[in-house]
Design a protein around this nucleic acid. Sequence first.
DNA 1: GTGGTCTAGACCACA
DNA 2: GTGGTCTAGACCACG
Lengths: 130, 130, 130, 130
Amino acid sequence: MRIDPSSHVPIYLQIADEIRAAVAAGIYRAGEVLPSLRAMAVEVQVNPNTVQRAYDELEREGLIFAQRGKGLFVAETGAASAQSGAEDGVRRLFDEGIRASQAAGMTRKQIFEIFHAALANSSKLGSNRP
Amino acid sequence: MRIDPSSHVPIYLQIADEIRAAVAAGIYRAGEVLPSLRAMAVEVQVNPNTVQRAYDELEREGLIFAQRGKGLFVAETGAASAQSGAEDGVRRLFDEGIRASQAAGMTRKQIFEIFHAALANSSKLGSNRP
Amino acid sequence: MRIDPSSHVPIYLQIADEIRAAVAAGIYRAGEVLPSLRAMAVEVQVNPNTVQRAYDELEREGLIFAQRGKGLFVAETGAASAQSGAEDGVRRLFDEGIRASQAAGMTRKQIFEIFHAALANSSKLGSNRP
Amino acid sequence: MRIDPSSHVPIYLQIADEIRAAVAAGIYRAGEVLPSLRAMAVEVQVNPNTVQRAYDELEREGLIFAQRGKGLFVAETGAASAQSGAEDGVRRLFDEGIRASQAAGMTRKQIFEIFHAALANSSKLGSNRP
DNA sequence: GTGGTCTAGACCACA
DNA sequence: GTGGTCTAGACCACG
């Protein structure tokens, strides 16, 4: 779980994205409890309120649900919805990159090369950055 | 020149990015004047102060320089620096997308498919929207 | 006895309301014992502490009283006080609904129609759900 | 705009309900600016963050939309969606009241009488309580 | 001035 | 211990 505090995208959305990805990846499974607000807050070095907001977001999406005094649980439909949500996010980033590259006058070949280089480089690091 | 007011990245940076891309694409050439503050403000439907900040940003990068009373000009080294800047930006977006997709447990094949779909879709729209 | 865990009104008050209604309806009569803490906790799928608070609430109202080691009993004056209590609660909900509808600019006719529809629909379900 | 701080329903939802009702009633019209966060916070004697949360809620519903630095505006589709939202809320309150009254063993006639009394009483006060 | 995010710390309902 | 709401006050982007 890595947060970039200097990013323009709000921390609470970054956290929500990370959790969504973790559910999509099967790290948290349907019916399981998520880390508590406070635990997560400690882990990502952030105020509990900020984590709460991330959880609110996910609850609204129907990905997780809360039980007072017990904790937060992954919904039955959570994995599926997390996967499509994650795909949408990735798609949006690629779209944005492609749009930017075309605005800069790059050819499809150039765009491809950049993408390939990025993908090749990422594999070297593995899926979880050290 | 397209601005997304609902994006998390500040409008002034979006404008700077667009101008950088335009320089990289050769739409604005070395020695040429950029549209005036006000003209640009009208074009992107934004407060002149915001355009000012974008120009400040680019000037700090050395991409453009101001001549009192005449306007803003593209630096000689502008095109080259804009190109590498644009590539960096695109690369960063792709990296981010790849990272997110791997965090969600997607395989290389799946990532590829999403990218291809995005690229195919984008060519339909044409590379530069007016 | 139905509890809505997603309601904003605390569960212990929901339980107290239900018991008050049951006394008003004559399901529990003066002098009779109420279900034990644990039995009630099992029935409504809730922590015994929460039921305890509901009983505390009712005892404070004088609707029920405890006899050490024997259980909780409905007070002689219980039925009457429960009835007026229940009426007050209903009245408060209707008042609130009427206030909200008027704030939204609805006419008396519209308000009536909504109420009738709600009442008609409810009779289909039967008056006491088990 | 009246808030009940002792209510169990969160202040931010009370505020959202009030604004929704005002839009439904045509007090705020499509395209118009709403009172600013801070102004509203002063009016309802509440922290600006709490108002912000109410506005967030309404923005998510598509009732209003924000423009950075400009203010909050009623969406074109706002009035319609506010009206159906307001009706739903009223309906929910009536349902709840009917359910409670039936649980207390009241007859339809009694329920009707309570409702009529509440409605009659409310008309005396007018739609905006003094 | 506007909205948007974040922090620190409080109190509540519930297990 | 858990989640949920609220406050006070800070900083940012934008007009």
